[in-house]
Simulated scan of single mutants.
Amino acid sequence: MSNSENPIEKTIMFSTDLTARCDRPMDRACRLAKTLPAKLVICHVLEHGQYGKEAVAAATADIEMHLASCEMDAEIIIQRGDIVAKIIETAESVGADLIVAGVARVGKLGDLVIGTPLERIIHHSPIPVLIVKNRAFTDYDLLVAATDFSAPSAYAIKQATQIFAGLPIHIVNAFHVPFEGFLHSDKLTEEFRTEQYLQMVKFVEQLRLTGSGAPKVSHIIEYGSTSTVVLDEIKDLNSNLTVIGTHGTGGFRANMFGSMARSLIDYIPTDILAVRQKPK
């Protein structure tokens, strides 16, 4: 995905709390800045009571040391105040196309996100958030996107293909047969599969991912739970980045796609690009 000869058109902002596991999102942010290519901005928000010059100098030195190991230049911004508000405010002020963030510890991603500043950033940021869980050993080379054919999932896919221009995208839909406990039959399942397939074809057409530079698009319809189907596709295709859309009103809505987004964040082991659809 290297575009080192292309002019820098994008801006990535990495939000760091300077804890031990921030090396993973830091390395990913640096790698993306080199390969997209993009300008890199690093933002750290000082905790309450650490607003002195010494705290600013220490945070700046810590970031500069890691940048030196990455052989990367970046704009460093140290903020004071509410973590979530300052991260979003800074990302908007620098014109960021992507916010890169990490998780606090190894484990289920949902356990690490729910109720944390990262959850609130995902809910409220108008800018896509890349949640980095894994080490950046390789570039991203394939996007796997979950969809229920909703507007938020369509918006997420379009944003992903703009940020990661040129990468192929594999769109996944999982389905169940309504009232299958009472109506289950192989014939009925195949009828629903056909119906879902036709919806997928229409959905992909409406994305309008065509023309010069358009990504290669593939798609699949499978019977089963969304998390299981998406995970199977990730394993089969050896993908390391999953795309999901979220609703931006008070957290993940308790509807089909909101529940799906939360389940994927909790269950999928890859890095995740979470995209919130802007309110109309």
Rank of each mutant, 00 (worst) to 15 (best):
N3Y: 15
P7E: 09
E9L: 13
K10P: 02
F14A: 13
D23M: 06
M26V: 03
D27T: 04
A29L: 08
R31W: 04
L36R: 12
L36Q: 07
P37F: 09
A38M: 13
A38T: 10
L40Y: 08
L40A: 04
V45Y: 00
G49H: 09
Q50K: 14
Y51G: 08
Y51H: 06
G52K: 07
E54F: 05
E54W: 09
A58S: 13
A58Y: 12
A59K: 03
T60P: 01
T60I: 13
T60L: 07
A61H: 10
A61W: 07
A61E: 14
D62I: 05
I63E: 00
M65L: 11
L67N: 05
S69H: 12
C70H: 14
E71V: 12
E75D: 12
I77Q: 07
D82C: 05
D82H: 12
I83L: 12
K86P: 00
I88A: 03
T90Q: 05
T90E: 05
E92R: 07
E92P: 00
S93C: 08
S93Q: 11
A96N: 02
A96D: 00
I99V: 10
V100N: 05
A101D: 04
A101H: 13
V103N: 02
V106T: 10
V106G: 10
G107L: 12
G107T: 08
G107R: 12
L109R: 14
G110R: 06
L112M: 15
G115A: 05
P117M: 09
P117E: 06
L118N: 00
R120Q: 11
I121S: 01
H123N: 11
H123D: 12
S125A: 05
I127Y: 02
P128K: 02
L130E: 08
V132W: 01
V132A: 04
A136Y: 11
D141P: 01
L142W: 03
L143W: 08
A146L: 06
A146I: 07
D148W: 13
S150Q: 09
S150P: 08
A151T: 12
P152G: 08
P152N: 08
Q159W: 07
Q159Y: 10
A160K: 05
F164G: 00
A165E: 14
A165F: 07
P168E: 04
V172S: 01
G181D: 15
F182S: 11
H184M: 10
H184T: 04
T189N: 09
T189M: 08
E190I: 10
E190D: 15
E190R: 15
Q196L: 11
V201N: 10
V204E: 03
Q206P: 05
R208T: 10
L209N: 01
T210C: 03
T210L: 04
A214C: 06
K216G: 04
V217P: 01
V217I: 11
I221F: 03
V229W: 11
V230N: 01
V230L: 13
L231T: 11
D232R: 10
D232Y: 03
E233T: 07
E233N: 11
N238Q: 10
T242Y: 05
F252E: 00
A254L: 14
M256E: 05
G258R: 10
M260D: 02
R262N: 12
S263G: 12
L264K: 02
D266K: 15
T270Q: 15
T270D: 13
D271Q: 13
L273P: 07
V275Q: 03
K278L: 15
